[in-house]
Design a protein around this nucleic acid. Structure first.
Lengths: 187, 187, 187, 187
DNA sequence: GATGAATGAGAGTTCATTCAT
DNA sequence: CATGAATGAACTCTCATTCAT
């Protein structure tokens, strides 16, 4: 029937279910049934269950890697940092279900071979938005800026308001935190 | 050795393993083996696997419920909010492994009967540290303050510095965010 | 129902089926069905399928180990060697199905952790019935004596004659081979 | 590289893997991967997995069938028997991997359609090297001569000495056994 | 002469859970 | 207060095989 796109369809359904129910609680049978193929068909396209999740990761990792690569070449100005945050938020929004999956299945992800990779990206990101030699509080502000954006993705659903407005507000707060850190000890 | 404390020992080991490996990947066999009892023994003390995790929850929920109860009776001053954050951090530190477990197994927790409970607590917490009628950005700041503290518990391990200093810095940033929100549109 | 002897029954049925159909072609489902228990029951008694086969091995290995231990303490006379062969045949007959299984599933056995163990026993056995410094032909005779007995167990079915008579004839030929070797270059 | 010889290459690889790991544990996927073709390609050349093994058999069966045909026409002298053994060893050496496969996968081979065929050949062989009406012991000697040669192929690896010398010694012992049988009750 | 995509059947294994003792 | 023995359901994964292209 549908031909050539089965691999993609597996990824789509898998991501949806992983995000919804968690990785462990989603069985290959379930994925296969939704696609109306057999379990064995999944194994034609992916070597293991973990392989499916790894392939999904690249969709999130690639944009962030590109962002990091771009950031490494920019001057360390406040404008750059703002732009990093803006682009980071863009990446998060663009890969929302995957990011949600990672957020909600950290215990699983940690044991999956990509766990380290992901944490490294986060560490690199914090490095990019903070100057070396910042006071501890300001370093915390930078980490906080990043996690504010993560929180913005999930918890903010429970805050009333227009989604787009909320997104902007989240970015504003994050930028603000980084600005405070950038200018150093307030004064 | 000590007798009659098996129930407690089950909880301890279960929490340790749940936090380390995740709920789904931790089997009752594993818990039983660590305790050098049989699986059936676990069933003497807990009706189901989920029951174990529910019992663990109360250790985290109770302190936070107490905190909420206390906060509800205080005046809505900035000082109160600062104290709320301080006590919240205290609760987090005091129930570190459990909190880590909840953080890293959200997908699982959501499906467990306590899932809702926990999210409600979070929503209540944000309500307590923000005035009604705040601008969206300021509401974000309050949410951000809470998540800064969560991030502080886990991600801050990757930031260099004395743990105690880091904890204080985290609290300072959180308090700062709430202060900004409290004073409303900056000026 | 039948209690306490399930482990033994598993071993019995497994050995029977392994010998009949081979290790790989015998599924745990089949074993379980014959015993009228579930597959999971097998796993209560044995950690893996391989574990079943390992446990079976000990029934063959132990008598042979005892034989080796006994032989090591005897003088290297012809009489001793004859007695070794006699006892070896006894061991073979006593563990007939297991031995047949090993003989017919060598490819499998080799990959199973006990493969080496078994080969070592054979090498030790040949050492015990030959003097050091024998001519090559005589060393071959000793190996041949051993394999004659193996052949005697299986292939001799296709030779007509009373089983007991055949067994004796096999032993006689084996003893003869070892005697020739013992006396060295014929003369 | 060379084209049109795929069928042969499949046989070569299959035999190698079957001998090394056993028939059941060797999957068509593995064979295909080694040849860098798809599994489906194997099905172009062979109708089933069993078909591959059957095709391999003929390489061993044919020389032995020829040997049998030749032997049937010879006078029943001792010299003929010696020559049979010599040629038999030659056939074994010439089809070493296949013979090893048969030896180590008897359980499997027995269920494969060629199982009977092979056993029949063995029985015919023993008939050829023994006179009708021999004493039981002497019949055993003849069987033993054959199995000495089999043992010589595999177990003799564990005996030190030059391979060619060992081969000769094996033949010598086999011939000796048949000679003893030929001359009947020793005297 | 071969591939890409898929299937159906079944494998070994693990799990939470039960219950008589 | 706990064990020994077992179950039923599910799991991930592999296999030989098929067939349209």
């Amino acid at each position: 029937m549908a031909r050539g796109n089965t691999r993609q369809r597996i990824q789509d359904v898998a991501l949806e279910l992983f995000a919804e129910q968690g990785y462990e609680k989603t069985s290959l049978r379930e994925i296969a049934e939704r696609l109306d193929v057999t379990k064995a068909a999944l194994y034609y396209h992916f070597k293991t269950k973990e392989d499916i999740v790894i392939s999904l990761f690249q969709d999130l990792t690639r944009p962030i890697d590109e962002l990091i690569a771009w950031a490494e070449e920019q001057p360390h100005t406040l404008e750059t940092k703002q732009e990093i945050l803006r682009r980071y938020q863009e990446a998060l929004v663009g890969a929302y279900p995957l990011f949600r999956f990672m957020q909600e299945n950290q215990a699983t992800v940690r044991e999956l071979s990509i766990g380290e990779t992901f944490k490294e990206r986060m560490i690199t990101m914090t490095r990019l938005i903070q100057e070396p030699g910042l006071a501890l509080t300001d370093r915390v502000r930078c980490v906080s800026a990043l996690f504010t954006m993560h929180a913005g993705m999930f918890f903010m659903q429970h805050v009333e308001g227009d989604p787009e407005d909320k997104r902007e507000a989240v970015l504003e707060v994050a930028v603000d935190l980084v600005s405070q850190a950038h200018h150093g000890p307030r004064g």
